[in-house]
Design a protein around this nucleic acid. Structure first.
Lengths: 188, 188
DNA sequence: AACCCTTTTTGACTTTTGTCAATGCACAGG
DNA sequence: CCTGTGCATTGACAAAAGTCAAAAAGGGTT
């Protein structure tokens, strides 16, 4: 059940059995229905989430009321408004489920207790931050260097599951273009 | 001389005198002339840099030959192609000096030796990653939610030194717009 | 002051993308 | 089997931003 998460941790840092049990003792599981919002703008992100199965989205709503997607997460990845989680300040982002999903979570307090208690957890966290940084780095690179059309083509080539599994509307807000523009790009 | 860096570290993590001396023993200083490139696309970033004084820029060159700026760093901030540094793989980014600058640096090997040797250095690194993540998060948010004009106005309001200290050309590549568009936005 | 070199501004035009509105389509719930 | 409701597509037009070229404005050097 929580094996997916164990594997994920182990890929980043070796954890002995005892430590792993300690980590797992802090974990809560959640079944989330499609369209459920697990974090709203203005709320503090008090838990670290990991998505075992399903699909979730981290997004903003602009003052004009438009949804803009920062990140879409699929099975086997962390899903957290990290900035809010780290600082324990209100989030500017929403997180919701695009499909029925299975989540694990750890509270902020436990997360940081583990950090001091278990060196391999600290290593795991550091590696995760490094990966998150690198991912965002590429995202900025794409947004700054590519046109809408090029961003779509790159996504189609490198992450075809985004386009297969998500609605046009969500893909468009992820690419930072309008639904109509995306629809026109697709029909070529 | 290296006091600026010491202060920077101390703000993120408490370091005792002995550890600080150990850290400082790994440090090299550099005087960099304006327009010097310290890292090119395709090179591995083998040192972690910290900018004590001056101004440096991290940027890409697109296949059309256009410069696109990911980040501009002023006095008292880290300046490193972190993704390349962490993975020790070739960088996609260039780093150059926009002004005469004073840098410190630590080699990759020393950096990771310190990480295992000195817990407060590990904490410093973790906090730095957290800050870098949060910064990039905001950058993505701006790129995704704001128009060129709004990005310019936000920069003018929140980081006026960018506009005062940098050439139009650099500001434009940072905002992801053309020089001419920026010039027109300014004249309103 | 005169020169060169770079940066900035301006104008005319093109391309890209967005907006609004209408239509078609598909699926969930009664 | 009908009927909404939301999503996708298409068309016509508008707005935003880019491109190219030329002129103007600075900045430093002799």
């Amino acid at each position: 059940m929580t094996d997916i998460f164990k594997d994920f941790i182990t890929q980043l840092a070796e954890v002995n059995k005892q430590d792993m049990n300690r980590i797992m003792s802090c974990i809560t599981t959640h079944e989330i229905k499609k369209n459920t919002i697990i974090l709203s703008q203005g709320e503090v992100c008090t838990r670290f989430y990991f998505l075992e199965k399903g699909c979730m989205r981290t997004y903003y709503i602009t003052k004009e009321g438009q949804e803009k997607t920062r990140l879409v997460s699929f099975d086997n990845s962390p899903v957290t408004a990290l900035t809010s989680f780290i600082t324990q300040k209100p989030s500017v982002e929403y997180i919701d489920a695009l499909e029925d999903s299975e989540l694990l979570s750890i509270s902020y307090d436990d997360f940081f207790i583990l950090l001091n208690e278990i060196p391999s957890w600290a290593l795991f966290y550091r590696k995760m931050l490094e990966l998150a940084f690198a991912f965002q780095n590429r995202r900025i690179e794409d947004l700054v260097t590519l046109s809408a059309k090029e961003r779509y083509e790159k996504l189609l080539k490198e992450q075809p599951h985004y386009i297969q599994r998500l609605s046009n509307r969500v893909v468009a807000t992820y690419l930072g273009i309008s639904q109509e523009t995306l629809s026109r790009l697709k029909s070529k």
